[in-house]
Nucleic acid binder design. Structure first.
Lengths: 141, 141
DNA sequence: ATAGTTGTAACCATTTTGATTACAACTATA
DNA sequence: TATAGTTGTAATCAAAATGGTTACAACTAT
């Protein structure tokens, strides 16, 4: 199974807010038309990003604005903000048989390797900041 | 979303076959009682592992046996054998708006970072062989 | 011939996802 | 202060993936 598109939607949303926010009022409708999803999906994303302390959103009059410095926001922050993965990335079959030597020890044998893989993924995400993405984006604009 | 338990089931299944295969006939029922899932789930797993050339299964009389050397089977091989992830690990929202500077370039900005993260995960899995797991398992048995 | 298996199709319930509708609450401003 | 434009959130919905389960034809060792 793939990791939910909430993640890339969140990245796209944030980039829009940080890059276009000075020029336009960043409403959920505006962002939705850039990402090309339903505005409610964006509002949910904004809600998560707000909870994570990354942006602020004006209720009523509307518009999202940066709170955190772009250097202080990593892809990993977004990945956790939108709950891509809760806890372990790898699902484990429940209740392996403790009467079998393999079933009894499968966790002891496997768990560390699985977390190492998950950590490798997450560390990679921690190494990329929103500021990095903005720099790259500016090369194209 | 998490990565399907087919993966850990496959690891468990293979360990059972490689470690207990000399002592017992490894039928889907036997393995199922160690993993603690339905035997049909194990048969599906065996089918994938057979297609990957890792084991052989005797139709009729029953029983799975190693084909590949345990040193030549990595966690990554199992991960691909059971189709944990087809292609990209990260789902991407489709059709970002090409009229928006962000929507137009979001792939150019993000794709490499996402594949880097996926590769980091997969490389970690490539670094662990079935033989490694068997050694660890023997310490506990 | 028979008993025990495998291989596979079929169907189900559950969960997750993202789309969508609906509407109360809020706020700038005319 | 009335209004228009938003946000926040609940409620539904359809689609897809997952794993469980039943069923049964095909196979094989004895």
């Amino acid at each position: 199974m793939k990791i939910t598109s909430r993640f890339t939607v969140a990245v796209h949303t944030l980039l829009a807010i940080y890059v276009l926010g000075k020029e336009y009022k960043m409403t959920s409708d505006f962002i939705a038309s850039s990402v090309n999803v339903n505005p409610v999906v964006i509002r949910r994303t904004l809600s998560s990003l707000k909870s994570a302390g990354i942006i602020s959103v004006k209720a009523g009059s509307g518009g999202a604005m940066p709170v955190k410095d772009a250097d202080d926001v990593t892809l990993y922050d977004l990945y956790t903000a939108v709950d891509c993965v809760e806890g372990d990335l790898f699902n484990f079959h429940e209740n392996p048989n403790p009467k079998c030597p393999v079933g009894k020890n499968i966790h002891a044998v496997l768990d560390l390797h699985l977390s190492a893989a998950q950590t490798a993924l997450e560390n990679e995400l921690k190494g990329v900041t929103l500021a990095d993405l903005m720099k790259q984006l500016n090369l194209f604009m």
